[in-house]
Design a protein around this nucleic acid. Structure first.
Lengths: 146, 146
DNA sequence: GCATAGTTGACTAAATTACTCGGTCTTCCT
DNA sequence: AGGAAGACCGAGTAATTTAGTCAACTATGC
């Protein structure tokens, strides 16, 4: 799982979209204005998210984007992986039984560690929806409150 | 929390060190040979880890490095942050009450999300010791077994 | 048929990463 | 004493990645 500014921008934009989706489509120009991002860059991000089925688009005047699913059902993990596609945590080759980090017969000891770390991040981000971010209702809040 | 190959190499090297620390110091040349890394690069990494007090060094022939504390008490989080120092997850300025991602008065909605995500990774890596990695005893294993 | 707005793909500048090199200082061994 | 092993240090560089731009095209509504 990769965490770049690209992913962050995408989440910012999607959160903005979720917050202003009162039935009509939202243009990139609006989002760019509110979030202080360039329209050209947003185009890139939304192109990928559209392909992944996270948003739907409408062309022409009055067009723009809207969420494909309700904000409660779109997770941060989906948004991040949509724009940061190749989320390889290890460079060992990818799939489980693959060679790569092998050396002298034994699989490198740290392999499992990174794989598990990736899962950990993935799981957390998959547990947070756009609606959660919008309402500031994140996980830890509860645990920390005590 | 940043996860680069640098951090991974550091963990590989430290795990190697932990596994070959039978009382005598281990030279970088040995580690380089076993882990297929360059000595020059390892020097960089160990310099930082020494400053952080994770390892102690001995110069001269027969010299090398050894763990400052037992492998059970050295966490992956410590190793990673030692070599990847600036672990800013948000670019909002850092400390909590800071300005930066503020705009129009309201703090950016995603701020808390990234902060919490960073904590999540940090917590996990802090829960794993070198000894755990060495013995392949990672967290999830148990949970998944069921 | 013109303005709005998404769609595409190639391209570039800047930053970061990973890594090297040359040289120094210590310590041990003979 | 002096030579070799090995840590120590700082500057420097090559390659990758990231972030972001640009120009041209296509669809839609008025």
């Amino acid at each position: 799982m990769k965490l770049s500014t690209k992913g962050r921008y995408a989440v910012m934009a999607m959160t903005d979209l979720a917050g202003h989706a009162d039935r009509r489509a939202v243009s990139l120009a609006e989002i760019a204005e509110r979030q202080q991002l360039s329209v050209a860059y947003l185009e890139q991000l939304f192109a990928r998210m559209r392909r992944r089925g996270l948003v739907v688009s409408a062309r022409g005047p009055g067009g723009g984007y809207r969420l494909a699913r309700p904000a409660e059902e779109t997770t941060i993990a989906e948004v991040v992986t949509a724009v940061d596609e190749p989320l390889r945590a290890t460079r060992c080759g990818g799939h489980d039984g693959a060679i790569g980090c092998m050396r002298g017969g034994a699989k490198c000891l740290t392999h499992d560690l990174w794989e598990e770390t990736g899962r950990q991040i993935q799981d957390y981000l998959a547990s947070v929806s756009l609606a959660d971010v919008l309402s500031g209702r994140l996980r830890r809040e509860r645990a920390v409150a005590a």
